[in-house]
Structures are given as structure tokens and as C-alpha cells.
């Protein structure tokens, strides 16, 4: 049999590609039949759509170091010295930066001097989830939490461009050396992935309220089920006027502010 060099090269290169592509596509994603079965935790706090109220009438911004500190400590959030690479789950901004779309003229003193507590809004229609090309960011249908899978994130930062609230932080540096006190019960992150507030999913599954809610002595943070008309959070929202950040974008944030 004679084949031309051209044909030989073509056939070998195509078959090499196929050989290389085959196993790499299946790698690690084959479904494993586990001998056991999985179920929900017995103490898990349940809700259809978790949400939070930040009552700025009660939060005077003086002790926010406490709730932010606890959050960042238990979640091993690094403290990066350069502001432009900072990682933040729970953070503060003045009124005009937290609500840049609202009136900045003749702002009342009460609002002007406030530092607003900000976190991921766990939007009902989250643009970050829409953007993510790997489903590393996703919304859980069962409880509405917008979660991240740090094992899957490729660090493309499309979600950061898509989130209009600045809730997401990219690990520009290796975060480990910047974690002040490591909590061994929670992982740190790797360099090159995005991270954000997870509404304390790891606490909810064992029956605990989010750490910031538990820490706040003034009762300024209320956490509950937005889908349950009898929940405390729904009662508060029914009674007091409230706002959400950038509602005009249609993301339907699950974090509400009272002031």
C-alpha cells in the first residue's frame, strides 16, 4: 500500500487529536455509583428563598467591625493590603456609593453619615449566574442561595463584570498568607478563583443562623424566608418602607434596607 506523505500526516494528526480529546473529555466526570445514599441534614434550616433585612435605623455603623470581623474570620477571607485587590464578603460603603443610582443631592444627614453594610444580594435573577461559563456560580433552586463551586471556577471574571453590586472578589494573590487566623473548619481559597458571601450555607445546613446575624447585638440584621408570608422578615417588610440596591436592573436582590 502506498500513501502519500500528505495523507499520512493528515491521518496521524487527526487520530492523535482524537486520542488526546477522548480521555480528556471524560476525565473525572464519570458518574460514580456510591454504595450509600445521601439525604438532608436533620437540623437544616429550611426556606424557599433566603433573604435578609438590614435595618439601618438600628445599625449605627459603630460595631460593624464585629459582624464583618466574624464573617471574614470564620470564612478565612484574606486581608489583602492593596485596596484594589481586596477580598470582601461583608463590607461597608457610604450611602452615595452603596446607592449610586439614588439622589445624591441634598441628602439628609441621617443617610449621609451612615456606612451601609453590603454583601452579595443573592439576587432572585442573578446576572452573575447567567454570565458564568462553567456553572461554577449557580443559584440553588431549593433555597435561592447564589453559591459558588470553587473547584470549578476558572477565574474568567465574567461574573465580576456582570454583578452590578461589586459583591465579588477575585483572588489576584495567593490568599493563604493573608488570612489572619485560619479557621480549619472552613477551606481557604486558591489564587485565581472568584469568591463571595455564601449566606453562611455551611451554618444553615447544621441549623445555625448566618454568623453576621448572630453577632449583631442590636438586632439590625434579620434573616428569613422571603417566600413564607408568616416569616418575621416578611412581617418587617410589610410594615416598613424599604429599598433594595439598583432595583431598576431587574436582578431582584434578596437583601433589603430599611432607613
Amino acid at each position: 500500500m502506498t500513501i502519500s506523505r500528505r495523507k499520512f500526516l493528515k491521518t496521524t494528526s487527526v487520530s492523535c487529536l482524537a486520542l488526546a480529546a477522548g480521555p480528556s473529555l471524560g476525565h473525572g466526570y464519570e458518574l460514580l455509583e456510591l454504595p450509600g445514599r445521601m439525604s438532608k441534614g436533620p437540623e437544616e434550616l429550611k426556606a424557599k428563598r433566603w433573604g435578609m433585612v438590614v435595618d439601618m435605623r438600628k445599625c449605627d455603623g459603630r460595631c460593624t467591625e464585629d459582624c464583618i470581623g466574624v464573617c471574614h474570620e470564620i470564612h478565612n477571607v484574606p486581608f489583602i493590603p492593596e485596596a484594589e485587590h481586596q477580598v470582601m464578603w461583608l463590607f461597608q460603603e457610604p450611602y452615595e456609593n452603596a446607592f449610586p443610582d439614588r439622589s445624591r443631592e441634598l441628602v439628609s444627614k441621617v443617610l449621609k453619615n451612615r456606612r451601609f453594610l453590603l454583601l452579595c444580594n443573592h439576587c432572585d435573577d442573578p446576572p452573575c449566574v447567567r454570565a458564568c461559563p462553567t456553572q461554577a456560580t449557580f443559584k440553588r433552586e431549593k433555597d435561592g442561595i447564589v453559591m459558588m463551586d470553587y473547584h470549578r471556577c476558572i477565574g474568567c471574571r465574567f461574573c465580576m463584570a456582570a454583578c452590578p453590586y461589586g459583591s465579588r472578589s477575585f483572588n489576584f494573590r495567593d490568599p493563604r498568607p493573608y488570612v489572619r487566623k485560619i479557621n480549619p473548619a472552613f477551606p481557604t481559597r486558591r489564587r485565581g478563583v472568584v469568591e463571595k458571601c455564601n449566606f453562611c450555607q455551611e451554618r444553615l445546613e447544621v441549623g445555625k443562623m448566618p454568623a453576621c446575624v448572630e453577632t449583631c447585638k442590636k438586632g439590625a440584621l434579620v434573616f428569613g424566608d422571603l417566600d413564607d408570608p408568616d416569616s418575621e422578615i416578611r412581617r418587617i417588610l410589610a410594615e416598613s418602607p424599604h429599598v433594595r440596591r439598583k432595583p431598576e436592573l431587574g436582578t431582584r436582590p434578596s437583601v433589603f434596607y430599611l432607613f
Binding site: 450509600g36 445514599r37 449557580f138 473547584h151 450555607q201
Partner: peptide
């Protein structure tokens, strides 16, 4: 991991 993070599961019965 997938069960915990995505499906709200928590307990494994071996």
C-alpha cells in the same frame, strides 16, 4: 461536594 453545594444534601448513609 456536588451534593452538598448544589443539592442541599448533608448526610451520607453508608
Amino acid at each position: 461536594r456536588i451534593a452538598v453545594v448544589r443539592d442541599n444534601l448533608f448526610v451520607y448513609t453508608a
